[in-house]
Simulated assay, not measured.
Amino acid sequence: MSSDQKLDLEFAYTTYQDSCRDLYSPYYYCRRPLGHDGVHAAGFGTGRLRWEHQPNHAPHMLS
């Protein structure tokens, strides 16, 4: 299973309340489960973004 397929499953089974929500931009926030290992991720297919936490963005800015 590719990392993209694993992320698709994580996104499908993670509710908004249980998602990380680290902010990439006002339009993209991490959809991985709270407490995940590795990079943050949002979006699907060719539009998927992955990023390290940005120190100037507090986590849960969209809560």
Score class of each variant (00 low, 15 high):
9 L>F: 14
17 Q>H: 05
31 R>W: 02
15 T>W: 03
33 P>Q: 10
13 Y>D: 03
29 Y>C: 11
37 D>F: 03
17 Q>E: 07
15 T>L: 07
26 P>A: 07
16 Y>M: 11
10 E>G: 05
27 Y>K: 13
11 F>Q: 06
27 Y>Q: 15
37 D>E: 12
17 Q>G: 01
29 Y>V: 11
35 G>T: 13
32 R>C: 05
12 A>T: 13
19 S>L: 04
12 A>S: 14
36 H>T: 09
18 D>S: 11
27 Y>G: 14
30 C>L: 03
33 P>I: 10
39 V>H: 08
15 T>R: 09
17 Q>I: 02
16 Y>F: 10
28 Y>K: 13
27 Y>N: 10
34 L>S: 03
19 S>A: 12
24 Y>R: 12
23 L>W: 12
20 C>K: 00
38 G>F: 14
15 T>A: 07
37 D>Y: 06
20 C>M: 03
10 E>L: 15
24 Y>G: 00
12 A>P: 02
35 G>N: 08
41 A>H: 01
22 D>H: 06
16 Y>G: 01
14 T>Q: 04
21 R>E: 04
36 H>F: 07
21 R>I: 01
36 H>W: 07
32 R>M: 08
14 T>N: 01
18 D>W: 11
30 C>Y: 00
14 T>G: 05
31 R>G: 07
25 S>F: 09
39 V>C: 15
12 A>F: 11
9 L>V: 14
21 R>C: 04
8 D>K: 15
13 Y>P: 00
25 S>A: 10
41 A>E: 07
34 L>I: 15
27 Y>W: 09
29 Y>W: 07
9 L>P: 00
21 R>S: 04
12 A>C: 08
35 G>R: 04
25 S>V: 04
21 R>M: 05
